[in-house]
């Protein structure tokens, strides 16, 4: 990233380098379900909310209130356990956290899986807004519609390798389908 090798860096170092990640499995990797919404929102950046090792609860609550309102997390109560929210709202916590920090590259893996329609639209809009701000987004998704609707370029993977990369206007469902089943070998750029 920006010329620096980050393959062997730790997670926090990668965060600092500007890499954000919305993991595929929000229950296992994205959230700590027993933690409150507020505590989940600072996961990964808790150091910056601590002074002399003690967490600044006021600042955490402030930040939580901000993100809850910007990302329309419902119910808008930061002391609820994440467990109590619907799938869509849980995902919004993860999105708020990962997109709320400073980043230049976002890896979004199945970001709308198991999420209700309203939240899907919301998350899609967030991704598009980020793109408009010049951020690089790698979207991994099994939803063809989502991929077609959002992407500038689409890569198809077959048997662990890129089978082809094409610009979005060229990507018809047939073309993508053929790459997906390995019937056509495109150019892996």
């Amino acid at each position: 990233m920006d010329g620096a090798e980050i393959t062997r860096r730790s997670v926090s170092e990668r965060h600092e380098a500007g890499l954000s990640h919305i993991p595929e499995d929000r229950h296992r990797r994205g959230l700590i379900l027993e933690y409150t919404v507020a505590d989940n929102l600072i996961l990964g950046v808790q150091k910056s909310f601590a002074k002399n090792g003690v967490l600044d609860r006021d600042r955490i609550m402030e930040k939580a209130a901000e993100e809850i309102s910007s990302f329309d997390i419902r119910p808008p109560n930061s002391i609820l356990e994440a467990r109590a929210l619907s799938g869509g709202n849980q995902q919004k916590i993860v999105v708020a956290r990962e997109m709320g920090r400073k980043f230049s590259v976002l890896l979004a893996s199945q970001p709308t899986r198991g999420v209700d329609v309203g939240a899907i639209e919301f998350i899609h809009q967030q991704l598009l807004d980020a793109r408009a701000q010049g951020k690089a987004i790698l979207l991994v998704s099994a939803e063809l519609n989502e991929v077609l609707a959002l992407s500038d370029r689409i890569a198809v993977m077959y048997r662990g390798k890129f089978a082809g990369v094409m610009a979005s206007p060229d990507a018809t469902e047939e073309a993508l389908g053929e790459l997906m089943i390995g019937a056509r070998k495109g150019n892996a750029a």
Partner: peptide, 12 residues
């Protein structure tokens, strides 16, 4: 509570 999420959050 959730070691996988903790790791993803940068906690060793």
């Amino acid at each position: 509570l959730q070691p996988d999420a903790a790791e993803y959050g940068g906690i060793s």
